[in-house]
Design a protein around this nucleic acid. Structure first.
Lengths: 186, 186
DNA sequence: ACCCTAAAGCAAAATCGTTGCGTCTAGCGC
DNA sequence: GCGCTAGACGCAACGATTTTGCTTTAGGGT
């Protein structure tokens, strides 16, 4: 029964806000359910009943934070659009807090949950860029090709090899994808 | 003071063994520090002092589990070697327990920790395969190219989109990489 | 053989996670 | 407009986990 304006909605908003505030104040590792509950003005049992445990709650908040706020900027052609988006994506995700959010999102309910949502956000943004390119009459690869050739390598390095990761790498991935002929795969 | 044969080494081995035993017996989610400590014949405070918390310990054990036991099999040529390795990699990593280990490894101490080790294992295996190909006189891509074109997409889908992931996808990634000309990049 | 350091054991206290029960609010039918 | 019902929240108690100060022991160096 989570209708806008209802009590549940107020509680959820209050708890989410408390998490974001406390993450900034005391750091993500110092978060506990009782701490969040106190800040949000609810009792711990409410959080346990609604979310199950702290990881589910953090996962919830993380997905909200990873949702893009605006459609990708239009720079006039596919190459510029993709490059700019990839650089921004890397910027946001590779920061310490970005990595923490990704890890939190990966922890939520296994299968079908928040991790997939996070990936869907990226695919959505890429799709907008590609559709725009096709509208212009440009040759464009498929969404899956971009996910494999750009998003996946970026995410892999963010998660497993954070050191030595810069915008040049993101640009190279985009260039190599677009150079490998105009395969408008699928 | 973790020298082989010392007391610390014995404790570490005992605790690691206890984690693996209990993971198999009661399941990963039922693990608690006191439980592991009891099985290992140490006190909980020892584990808290050495590892900090349960996630660090699980991260440690997970990396051990992700270490490949044998060098990749030799199938006669680069394409067959890479394909077989990618399929096996996918098989091991995409299983529920494999995903759990990966997630555990990602949780350890941020930066320079266990996640990097996990990636290094894969790079090592790929390197063996590529070196073998070059010994045979074949054209081979660089390790980084394989990581970007095969390992990263596999891992991305394992983590973010586990549904609809099969051996054919792994084969396609390898084929597409090798088809894109004999760029022995770097 | 002796000391010196680092790590482990021990035990108590604080904190956290969990659960049952009563109360209240929101939405719904009359 | 007024009860009615179902779901959600607060309260409180319990059990388990985590943390901490002090003591003890094992290893390594001289």
């Amino acid at each position: 029964m989570v209708r806008p304006g209802g009590r549940s909605a107020r509680v959820q908003a209050s708890v989410h806000a408390a998490v974001r505030e406390l993450e900034a104040e005391v750091g993500r590792d110092a978060l506990t359910v009782p701490l969040v509950a106190q800040r949000a003005g609810v009792t711990p049992s409410t959080i346990y009943r609604r979310w199950g445990d702290l990881q589910e709650l953090l996962s919830d908040v993380a997905v909200e934070r990873l949702r893009p706020e605006a459609p990708p900027e239009d720079h006039g052609d596919l190459s510029a659009d993709l490059t700019a988006w990839a650089e921004q994506f890397l910027d946001e995700m590779a920061s310490p807090s970005g990595r923490a959010y990704i890890r939190d999102a990966l922890l939520g309910d296994p299968d079908g949950g928040n991790a997939g949502q996070c990936s869907a956000y990226a695919a959505e943004q890429v799709d907008v860029i590609l559709a725009r390119a096709i509208d212009r009459g440009e040759d464009a690869p498929g969404v899956e090709a971009v996910m494999d050739a750009v998003v996946a390598p970026l995410m892999y390095r963010i998660l497993f090899r954070p050191a030595g990761l810069d915008a040049a790498y993101a640009r190279r991935l985009v260039t190599e994808l677009l150079d490998s002929a105009g395969e408008t795969s699928r």
